[in-house]
């Protein structure tokens, strides 16, 4: 059992959720109620990771992030570091891959809020920020919970993109799913079986916990 990989998977999932959910809330709200040019294009771009083969996405990210590329060169100049074959690289990849899983449920959550409920908040004197905090976020809560569950579970299972951009460096980029693959390659079938079971149990637990949380939030106050 590769505990380092297990810990790395959890860290990657936690960072992804922590960074992606606030960003997705802003993006989803804009897409739910905004009416601007290029909205369909942005929606299509967000959905793209769903339909693109992970290896293809990983390949493009690898090319984009490599120190020879413009972006990679800029990062090298700025931080004297790089985005390929390290944790920061797989985190950025994970953020991109998980966009549809985070944005979609939250967008549906915002879209389900009737327009006149928001207007009622404005007429009641609530500022836009207060309306977001007191009305919109609580009402979009089930969507946000779904986004957290999907993103978390999906990050734990992500394989192709991470392998392409991160390789399999212990303690840096070798997450649990890659460690499973390595174990099978090395004929350590029992190890792979144990880790698979852990991953399965963890994914199930993550989803169960957030759904319980969503139900708890919906129950009326006594």
């Amino acid at each position: 059992m590769d505990w380092t990989a297990f810990s790395l998977s959890l860290q990657l999932a936690a960072w992804t959720v922590g960074l992606l959910i606030p960003l997705s809330i802003l993006l989803a709200r804009l897409l739910a109620w905004g009416n601007f040019r290029g909205k369909s294009l942005i929606e299509a771009l967000i959905m793209l990771p769903l339909v693109m083969p992970p290896t293809v996405l990983g390949f493009y990210l690898l090319v984009t992030f490599s120190p020879q590329s413009a972006l990679g060169g800029f990062v090298k100049w700025l931080f004297d570091g790089q985005l390929v074959f390290n944790f920061a690289g797989i985190l950025i990849a994970s953020l991109i891959v998980n966009l549809p899983f985070a944005v979609q449920p939250i967008q549906r959550g915002f879209e389900a809020i009737p327009r006149n409920v928001r207007e009622a908040a404005f007429v009641s004197g609530l500022s836009r920020w207060e309306t977001l905090r007191r009305i919109e976020l609580p009402l979009a809560w089930p969507g946000i919970i779904s986004a957290i569950a999907l993103t978390f579970a999906h990050t734990l299972g992500e394989f192709g993109v991470i392998l392409m951009i991160g390789g399999s460096i212990p303690g840096e980029t070798r997450v649990l799913s890659i460690s499973i693959y390595d174990s099978v390659q090395a004929f350590r079938i029992d190890d792979a079986g144990l880790m698979s079971t852990v991953l399965l149990a963890f994914s199930l637990a993550a989803i169960a916990i957030v759904h319980a949380l969503a139900r708890w939030r919906r129950t009326p106050a006594p």
């Binding site: 006149n116 207007e119 009622a120 404005f122 009305i135």
Partner: peptide
């Protein structure tokens, strides 16, 4: 709307569904 002191009763009331 926030700056207008107006009370509006919407056709379907538009109450905040998650609040008492």
């Amino acid at each position: 709307p926030q700056a207008r002191r107006v009370g509006l009763v919407f056709q379907d009331y538009a109450l905040f569904p998650h609040l008492s």
